[in-house]
Computed example of a mutant assay.
Amino acid sequence: MMPSSTMQMFAFILAVLGVVSATVATLLPNWKVSADVGSNIMTAISQMQGLWMDCTWYSTGVFSCSLKYSVLALPAYLQTARTTMVLSCMMATMGLCLAALGLKCTRWGGSYRSKGHTAISAGACFVIAGVLCLVPASWFTNEVITTFMDSKVPKSSKYEPGAAVYVAFVSAGFLLAAGVIF
């Protein structure tokens, strides 16, 4: 009985890390970062694009962001990434609530059998949240790399995957691992 409680606590910690990192990835403005391909030393700005805003970092140290207000003007991969990342955060949060009730080390949540069913439900929520986080990160990365490799795109308009994409991949891993353990 002790090892399974320990594994549940480990999975719960992974799930908390997954929820936090998925939320951070959703909010970060650096899903795409301007690439320094063929630029000269006089380049004055660095640009970043996120799910919710585009930011520019000027050589003077000024950091300016503008929100993306129109949903319909966005490309399909960006609309999908927004939606699935928000759904991932919601499913993972619901999984955390269920996991807190289903942990063997807690006194609330009902009988041993109902705790088992609750823990399995939490695991399913985490797996779904992990997949919902993995899909936009993969699709977004594919779009950025495809555009980067396109020879018709000028060098000044090329972007690379930013840190938020990597955070999304890590959070998907945390959530999937927690779901499988639960």
Rank of each mutant, 00 (worst) to 15 (best):
M53C: 09
V131W: 05
M85W: 06
M42D: 14
M1F: 06
Y112W: 10
A164L: 04
L176P: 04
S151T: 14
Q49H: 07
F63A: 00
Q8C: 00
T118Q: 15
S5I: 13
T147R: 11
F148N: 00
M91E: 11
A99M: 08
M94C: 13
M1Y: 04
S4L: 02
G110F: 01
A164D: 03
G162W: 04
P75T: 10
V167I: 12
H117S: 11
A172E: 14
F10A: 09
F140V: 14
L87D: 08
M48A: 09
V19H: 12
G109F: 00
V86D: 03
T141G: 14
V16S: 03
A73P: 09
V71H: 08
V170R: 12
A122E: 03
P3E: 01
S66L: 06
M48V: 07
V20W: 09
A119W: 11
A122D: 02
F169T: 00
Y166P: 11
P136V: 06
I128L: 13
A122Q: 02
A44V: 05
T146S: 14
A168Q: 08
G18N: 15
L78E: 15
L175W: 04
T147A: 15
G162N: 02
S121L: 11
D36C: 07
K158M: 02
S121H: 05
L74K: 10
L98A: 14
C133R: 09
L14Q: 12
T26P: 13
G109R: 01
G61S: 01
Y77D: 14
V153S: 00
C55G: 06
T56R: 09
G38A: 03
A81W: 01
M48R: 12
A76R: 14
R82G: 13
T83S: 08
S64L: 03
F126L: 01
L101E: 06
G102W: 02
L132Q: 03
C65T: 03
A178R: 08
I45N: 13
T141N: 14
G95P: 02
G38Y: 00
T80H: 07
S151N: 11
W139R: 15
K32S: 12
A168V: 10
G95S: 07
S111P: 01
N142L: 13
S4C: 01
V19K: 15
R107T: 08
C133Y: 07
L96H: 08
L101G: 10
A129K: 12
Y77F: 14
M1G: 05
K32C: 07
Y58G: 02
P161H: 01
L96V: 02
I128E: 07
A15P: 07
L78Q: 12
V153E: 00
T146V: 10
L101T: 01
F126P: 08
P154R: 00
Y112N: 12
S66G: 01
W108L: 09
P29T: 04
T146C: 06
L17G: 13
L74F: 05
S88W: 09
V16T: 03
I181L: 14
T118C: 13
T84H: 15
R107Y: 07
V135A: 11
T106V: 06
V37K: 03
P154I: 00
L103A: 04
V153D: 00
D150G: 04
W108V: 14
T56N: 08
G38S: 06
S121K: 04
I41L: 13
G110V: 02
N30K: 05
